[in-house]
Structures are given as C-alpha cells and as structure tokens.
Design a binder for these strands. Structure first.
Length: 110
DNA sequence: ACAGTGACCATAA
DNA sequence: CTTATGGCCACTG
C-alpha cells in the first residue's frame, strides 16, 4: 500500500481520542497503528505535535513515567495538565497507571 | 552512504 | 533498583 498519509497524523488522531483523565503509551499507539517504526517514532511524532491540538501530556512511556515532560516548555506543565484532568502524578510517575491506561488496541478493538 | 542520537520497548543479569 | 544489549525507524551532520 502507498504511504497511508503521514503517520504523524495517524498518531495525532489516536492521541486526540484519549479520554480526559486517561493516559496511553507510545508502544500502545505503535501497536494499534501497526507501525513498523516502533514506539520511537511515536515519540518523534509527538515532537512535531507542537502547535497541533494534540494532548501529548496523555502520552507517556510503558512504565507510566512522564518521559516527555521536559519538552512542554517547563517540566511542571505536563504533570500540571494531568493532575488538572484528575490524574495523580507522583515523582514524575502516574499513580494507578495501569488503571488509567487507555490502550486503543484494547479499548477501540471492540 | 555512515555514524550518532532519540518524548521507546523488551529481556536479561 | 541499575546497567547492558538488541531492535526499530527517522532525522541530522
């Protein structure tokens, strides 16, 4: 198949679908979109998400750590955004991460 | 074309 | 918990 479109857009689309108060992971998005690129490119896509309407603060790594908090202009912004949505964050990690995890392959696959 | 780097992931020790 | 290794692909110099 031809290049499906910019996979960036695919990633953004999924991220926008993440419900408020929930979080998802790079790996989950990569698996859902079957990106051969792997989770790394999802992060790369997020890097370009600046200026777009993409809640990148809901996208974290597989252990629930706010790996990209440093890229929000200020390290405290990402945590603030999450807590503002009802997500508890302690020591740069999401509390009840597994419970708050919104995996498209699991939630949308129905 | 090659090497280094990266908002990652999984496994191993 | 940390450190190491392999994979995966895109961007930069």
């Amino acid at each position: 198949m031809t290049p499906p479109r910019d996979y960036f857009e695919e990633v953004y689309d999924v991220v926008r679908l993440v419900p408020k108060g929930r979080v998802t992971t790079y790996g989950a998005i990569a698996r859902y979109l079957s990106l051969r690129a792997g989770a790394r490119m999802v992060g790369w896509a997020m890097n370009a998400s600046h200026g777009k309407d993409v809640p990148a603060h809901r996208v974290i790594n597989s252990v629930g750590v706010l790996s990209g908090k440093h890229f929000f202009g200020s390290p405290s912004v990402m945590q603030q955004l999450l807590e503002d949505e009802g997500v508890e964050v302690v020591d740069d990690r999401v509390v009840n991460f597994k419970t708050l995890l919104w995996d498209p392959s699991d939630e949308l696959a129905l």
